[in-house]
Simulated scan of single mutants.
Amino acid sequence: MASSTVIAKTDVTLAWIDKHTEPVEPEQYGPLSAQFMPVMVNELSRRQRRAKQEALAKEKALQRLHTAEQMTTLGQLAAGIAHELNNAIGVVNSKTERMQQDLLQLLEELHPEVSGYFDVGLMQGQAVSSSEVRRIAKRFQRDYRLDRDTAKQLARALSDNPVPESWLSDPSKALKYWGMGRDLHDLKIAARHTVGIVKSVKQLGRTDGEPDELLDINDTINKALALLQSDLRRVSVRMQPAVLPLIKGASTEYVQIWSNILKNACDALQQTDAPNINIQTKFVNQRILVTIANNGPEIDEPTRRKIFQPNFTTKKGGLSFGLGLGLSIVKRIVSEIGALLPLRAMRLAPSFASSYQ
């Protein structure tokens, strides 16, 4: 009895056996059924493997199609939001420039003696991490006999440089005007970064973005840390940068990746005593590896499986409500730059993915 129908696409030689076929050396190899069984098992196994591969390929194709549809719809919505944000940030950007000019003019006219402090903050901002601030502050306390708070403020303002005599004579005044300059410096950086974010959000449902500069990954991480200064005030951040090769890409998009992950980590650490975030970069096997880890609680498995889905968020209320777009944007950017996917969560907080490789 035939068990299957075979249609050959080319000329073939067909061989078959039936119940009248004589077994070959049955004394040594057993009856016909025993001799033919390995052939049958091998063929069935081969067909099963092929069917499984085809099913997996079909499932992946459907997933890609579903993701493409989601991202296209999300991209259309995001483009509308981005248009409105672009108008608003344009006003912020222009007013910031005007404010800078007016403040510089006022200080030169009314308080020329403090304009130098303002200029330091405006030009440099705060370029040191919280761990570096603590180290430098201890040296300032010892060398200049300062109290702890003043030493920390001066460490933020002057990094590891010697403290000028003018700053030591009236540190409160110097730090006050330095802080004004720093805040304006941060406002300008945030405004420029937001312009880049708006551009990136417009690309949410598209894949035609073009890298346009050579950059150092460590620099993009430091820019993200600068943007999140207010969120990181109570968090101890430790940065362990390696010497990395320059790569071609859009700086704004990399800053967006780190900003989203670090902001999520900050939110996850709100209930953690002595919160800390460790950032490490390496160059291994011709790949750049960035590890961000924190000491917050782990995320539950059902939530972990959804963290990269558009519109999924666990931030439902209060000042930390979320739109569910952050990690979707991260995944899109990482996919486009050709990094390893899927992103592998290492330690995850209950509400926010906070550590990835």
Rank of each mutant, 00 (worst) to 15 (best):
V12G: 03
W16Q: 07
H20K: 15
P23F: 04
P23V: 05
P26F: 10
P26R: 11
S33G: 12
Q35F: 06
E43Q: 02
R46F: 06
Q48G: 07
R49G: 05
A55V: 08
K58P: 03
A61T: 01
L62T: 04
E84D: 09
K95A: 15
K95S: 15
L103K: 00
Y117E: 00
G125N: 07
S131A: 09
I136K: 00
R142A: 13
R142N: 09
R145C: 14
V163K: 06
S166F: 02
D170G: 06
S172P: 03
K173R: 12
W178T: 00
H185F: 01
H185A: 02
H193K: 06
V195E: 10
G196D: 09
G196F: 04
K199I: 05
K202W: 00
L204M: 06
T207G: 11
T207E: 10
P211Q: 05
E213W: 05
I217L: 10
A224W: 01
L225Q: 09
L228Q: 14
S230I: 08
R234V: 14
V235L: 08
R238K: 14
M239K: 03
Q240N: 12
P241S: 15
V243H: 15
I247Q: 03
K263T: 08
A265Y: 02
P275T: 01
N276D: 11
I277W: 07
Q280G: 14
T281V: 06
N285R: 07
Q286C: 13
N295D: 03
P297Y: 00
E298T: 05
E298L: 05
E301L: 08
P302H: 09
R304C: 07
T314V: 05
T314K: 09
G317Y: 07
G317K: 08
G318P: 14
G318A: 12
G326M: 10
R332K: 13
A345N: 04
M346H: 06
M346S: 08
S351I: 13
A353P: 10
S355F: 05
